[in-house]
Each structure stands twice: as structure tokens, then as C-alpha cells.
């Protein structure tokens, strides 16, 4: 079973990962569990349990084509983020903690959806770019 997790919040471009999960849910993917989380903080690690493969999708403040997608490594997310959720425990910090504690899933993939510069605006999701990255992983 593959767990696909979209992390976001209701605010502006931070909804992008939720939109990505919503789109994936229309594809009738077998063997996939789709989950949307609202700023889970360190509790994100609970969703890495009892599963071999996790695809984590998150909006990233990246000045690339808004709505596009990139395959990232956890270390790409700098740990200097100041606008994080749950007492400073955002996705970058949680992934670093999970690595330190040996609580990362054996097969882990991180996909960032580009917000562009205007974080308060919700760009259109590039569904083709998303599918190009996600479908080969499933």
C-alpha cells in the first residue's frame, strides 16, 4: 500500500497540496491511500507508520512556474523556515526529526508544488506536471 499525503492549510497557495490530492483522488489509483492534513507539525510522523512507501506533497515557496511540481529531497527544505506551523515544527523540521529518530518510511518521496511569489494567491495546479511526477512512483 502506498500512502499519499498532502500537507497544507486553507490559506492561499498553501492549499496546493490539498488540490493535488483532490486531483489524484479522481484518477482511481489502486493500492493508494490519499490523505489531506492541515499543518500536522511533528504529528506528521504518525502517518509514516505501518506503511512502506509514502509520497508527501507540500506547497513550497519557490519562484518557479506557479502550480508546477518538483521532486525534492528532504534536505532541500532548509530548516530556517520561520513561518511554520505548530510551534515551529513544519514539514522540514519534522522530516529532519523523523530521520534522526529513524521513523522515516523505507521508501519516501517528497513532491513540492510551486507557490510562486504571491503566497496569498492560489495558482492553478499543473495537473499534468503532477501526474508526470507521481504516477511513475506508484
Amino acid at each position: 500500500m502506498i500512502r499519499v499525503i498532502g500537507v497544507g492549510s486553507p490559506f492561499g497557495a498553501d492549499r496546493l497540496a490539498w488540490l493535488a490530492v483532490d486531483h489524484l483522488s479522481t484518477l482511481q489509483l489502486s493500492e493508494c491511500e490519499l490523505i489531506k492534513l492541515d499543518r500536522p507539525g511533528s504529528q506528521l510522523l504518525n502517518y509514516f507508520r505501518e506503511v512502506l512507501k509514502v509520497i508527501l506533497i507540500d506547497a513550497v515557496a519557490l519562484d518557479e512556474t506557479p502550480g508546477g511540481a518538483s521532486l525534492l529531497a528532504p534536505v532541500d527544505l532548509q530548516q530556517i523556515s520561520v513561518s511554520t506551523s505548530s510551534h515551529g515544527f513544519g514539514v522540514a523540521q519534522t522530516l529532519a526529526l523523523g530521520t534522526q529518530l529513524g521513523q522515516m518510511p523505507p521508501d519516501f518521496h517528497l513532491i513540492g508544488i510551486h507557490t510562486g511569489i504571491a503566497l496569498s494567491e492560489l495558482p492553478s495546479l499543473d495537473v499534468e506536471a503532477l501526474e508526470r511526477l507521481v504516477l511513475p512512483l506508484i
Binding site: S9, D14, L71, Q78, A92
Partner: peptide, 17 residues
């Protein structure tokens, strides 16, 4: 102190694979 909840945009240093 719980100053308030904040959204969670990440500053990203991108290394493409």
C-alpha cells in the same frame, strides 16, 4: 508563549535531481 498560529510556507533551497 503561543503568539498565534502561522501558515507554513517553507523557504526552499532547491537542488534538482
Amino acid at each position: 508563549p503561543c503568539i498565534s498560529c502561522a501558515t507554513h510556507f517553507l523557504k526552499l533551497k532547491l537542488n534538482r535531481r
